[in-house]
Amino acid sequence: MSAHPIYARVTRRETRSPRSVLAITLAVILIVVFVWVGTEIVLALLGQPALLAAPADMFASALGVGDLPGGIVATAGIVVAALGLVLTIAALTQGRRARHVLGTERAATVVDNEVIASALARHASSAGNVDPDNTTVSVSHRRAVVYLTPTSGIPVNRDAVSEAVTQQLASYGLHPTVRARVRISEKAKVGA
């Protein structure tokens, strides 16, 4: 990866995912709840019947939580705490896009995982003497898994495929690094 600060900023922006969808969803939920509670308060002040629950009933039921069985209160507390923990972790951690940075000095080069998978599939099928249609590759943040389905009667050399895929990944200089794993199906397909 390039040491130029602008390239570092560009690659960071292109490989990280914002949490705006989560933030917008939570904001909409909170707005709806506050509008509903405000509407209930206004209806109660006007002497109209409540839509779902009157504010006095909501307040009384909140105060009456201590009278409920301990198991229900503890379970509700655990659920609320777990939800709060998940939201806190989501707020503090960075999201990732399905992309990697190629090791180049001349430019900021960001490659989608599907492009890496396609290139690895081509090299794996060639090294394993397998039809390209019988080769599937999935690339995640730190791992590439190559699935090969051999043609019946033609054995596949796992070590040759693994070496070809590992060399190809090393030549890309991906950041973060990706490790390859090769899986060969025990059931073969009849060749065309």
Rank of each mutant, 00 (worst) to 15 (best):
M58C: 07
A60N: 12
A60H: 09
A62C: 02
A62Q: 09
A62F: 12
L63G: 12
G64H: 06
G64I: 01
G64A: 15
V65S: 00
V65Q: 06
V65C: 00
V65M: 04
G66Y: 04
G66D: 13
D67K: 10
D67H: 03
D67Q: 10
D67A: 15
L68V: 04
L68Q: 13
P69N: 05
P69Y: 03
G70Y: 01
G70E: 05
G70P: 00
G70D: 12
I72D: 00
I72H: 00
I72M: 01
V73N: 01
V73H: 00
A74R: 04
T75S: 14
A76G: 11
G77W: 02
G77D: 03
I78P: 03
V79C: 02
V79R: 10
V80N: 02
A82P: 01
L83N: 07
G84M: 14
G84P: 08
G84Q: 11
G84D: 13
G84E: 13
L85Y: 08
L87G: 09
T88K: 08
I89E: 04
A91I: 10
L92E: 10
T93S: 11
Q94E: 13
G95R: 06
G95F: 03
G95T: 04
G95Q: 09
R96W: 05
R97P: 08
A98I: 07
A98Y: 08
V101H: 05
V101S: 06
L102P: 00
G103R: 14
G103A: 15
G103V: 04
G103Y: 11
T104N: 10
E105R: 10
E105M: 03
R106I: 08
R106E: 11
R106C: 06
R106W: 08
R106F: 11
A107P: 04
A107W: 05
A107V: 07
A107S: 09
A108F: 09
A108V: 07
T109N: 04
T109K: 00
T109P: 00
V110A: 00
V111W: 01
V111I: 12
E114T: 13
E114M: 13
E114D: 15
I116W: 05
I116E: 03
I116Y: 01
I116T: 07
A117Q: 06
A121R: 04
A121C: 02
A121P: 01
R122W: 09
R122S: 13
H123S: 09
H123T: 13
A124C: 02
A124I: 06
S125I: 11
S125K: 04
S126F: 13
S126W: 10
A127W: 00
G128T: 02
G128D: 05
V130R: 03
V130C: 07
V130L: 02
D131K: 05
D131H: 06
D133S: 14
D133R: 15
N134E: 14
N134I: 09
N134A: 13
T135P: 03
T135Q: 07
T136V: 11
T136L: 12
T136C: 02
S138R: 15
S138A: 13
V139N: 04
V139L: 11
V139Q: 02
S140M: 10
S140A: 14
